[in-house]
């Protein structure tokens, strides 16, 4: 479930990146992060499948819920990292102009 949610996040962020109007949103970081995590969880899933066999595809409901919760939390963390990096980089200079206005 975590793998699935991360793959969806990777595909959605890639589509948004492809349709972007400018490079100012630094979406590349977000999609590379999600694709990297997806590939890593894919390896994890392959090893787990090799160990459990067909049982891997019939997880308990509790495990599904926990994994889904984890997957959503991972996506949230990825988005937070991206937004923090975006605000620090401040490619449009908006943060700087707001801070300059408030500075005495």
């Amino acid at each position: 479930m975590t793998l699935l949610i991360t793959v969806f996040a990777a595909v959605i962020s890639t589509v948004i990146w492809y349709n972007r109007k400018d490079d100012d949103m630094r979406l590349g970081i977000l999609l590379f992060m999600f694709w990297g995590a997806s590939l890593m969880w894919l390896v994890d899933a392959i090893f787990e499948y090799a160990e459990l066999g067909a049982e891997y595809f019939t997880p308990a409901l509790e495990d599904i819920i926990n994994d889904a919760f984890l997957g959503l939390s991972v996506v949230a963390l990825g988005l937070v990292i991206w937004v923090v990096r975006l605000l620090i980089a401040d490619p449009k200079g908006k943060v700087r102009s707001i801070l300059k206005k408030t500075a005495v």
């Binding site: 970081i29 992060m33 694709w35 990297g36 995590a37 997806s38 890593m40 984890l70 963390l77 990825g78």
Partner: peptide, 20 residues
């Protein structure tokens, strides 16, 4: 930089899973 972002991004998100 593409490779670094994929490796580090994946490692950070997986580290979070391990904390979880």
């Amino acid at each position: 930089r593409w490779l670094f972002n994929m490796l580090m991004g994946g490692a950070v998100l997986l580290a979070f899973e391990h904390v979880w």
